[in-house]
């Protein structure tokens, strides 16, 4: 579905990614784990067209999107929930969700999806008229994921969904991620510092170190790999 081939990404003169290659197959959850500053978020920003790669290619269903504008990429069905959630603080919960469906014209489908989301997250239904900025961290993460779902993404890019959340809330969020993958058949690209949780959720995983992919395997294999256990799982 998504194939990244050998991309180099720069911020000014500083190279953040060195020849990163990876692929995401239809219907799976893949995860990209790595330390702070390894280039995980940069990879997502390159896919979304916010920081286009200087060389290499990004193919989405065979089409090169590496030089496309962010809104064009979004139209193909790639939606990102960035690190830090980026809720519009002064828009209400409903208005935030509306923004996820900004490009859609099927008001019936939008209403259906809104219903589905309020079922998935009853707390959002309860707070629908409150400004997004008043929500707790966990609620904001739910809203951020829901807002992305409102665009009916084919590939959902999630950046650090567990950041700053209590363990119980984090577990809830990851359960929802699995549900979305199973019920909606949404393919998910998960970037996460909590490698343990990410590898338990994902089918396959990639390990990023200093802007380079150093390992890739089935998630279960990575979980039992001693080097990974030492470096990322704290075992």
């Amino acid at each position: 579905m998504l194939e990244i081939k050998n991309i180099d990404v720069f911020y000014g003169n500083i190279q953040a990614l060195h020849g990163v290659s990876l692929r995401v197959n239809q219907g799976e959850i893949i995860t990209l784990i790595g330390a702070n500053g390894a280039g995980k978020s940069t990879t997502l920003m390159a896919i979304s067209g916010i920081v286009p790669p200087r060389s290499g290619s990004i193919l989405f269903e065979g089409r090169d999107i590496s030089a496309m504008a962010a809104d064009e990429i979004f139209k193909l069905g790639l939606c990102q929930v960035p690190e830090g959630r980026h809720i519009f603080p002064e828009l209400t919960v409903t208005e935030n969700l509306d923004m996820g469906a900004f490009l859609r014209r099927d008001s019936k489908g939008i209403a259906q999806d809104l219903e589905y989301i309020y079922q998935l997250f009853p707390i959002l239904a309860k707070r629908r008229h409150q400004p997004g900025g008043n929500l707790s961290g966990g609620e904001q993460q739910m809203l951020a994921i829901s807002r992305a779902l409102m665009s009916r993404p084919r590939l959902l890019l999630l950046d650090e969904p567990s950041m700053g959340l209590a363990p119980l809330i984090t577990k809830q969020i990851f359960d929802i991620i699995r549900t979305i993958n199973q019920e909606q058949h949404t393919t998910i690209f998960l970037v996460e510092q909590n490698a343990n949780l990410a590898l338990q959720t994902a089918h396959r995983g990639y390990v990023l170190e200093n802007g380079r992919v150093v390992m890739q395997d089935q998630a279960a294999e990575l979980l039992s790999n001693t080097a990974i256990q030492k470096a990322y799982l704290g075992i």
Binding site: S48, I50, A70, D71, F74, K75, C79, Q80, P82, H86, F88, P89, E90, L91, E95, D98, M99, G100, F102, L103, R147, S151
Partner: peptide
């Protein structure tokens, strides 16, 4: 209006607006 909401969203968080396909 849809445009009005997008204007507010863009004013509050331009990068996120871009990530939601809003032509900023």
């Amino acid at each position: 209006t849809r445009t009005g909401k997008a204007m507010r969203a863009t004013a509050q968080d331009k990068k996120m607006a871009l990530l939601l396909g809003i032509n900023v």
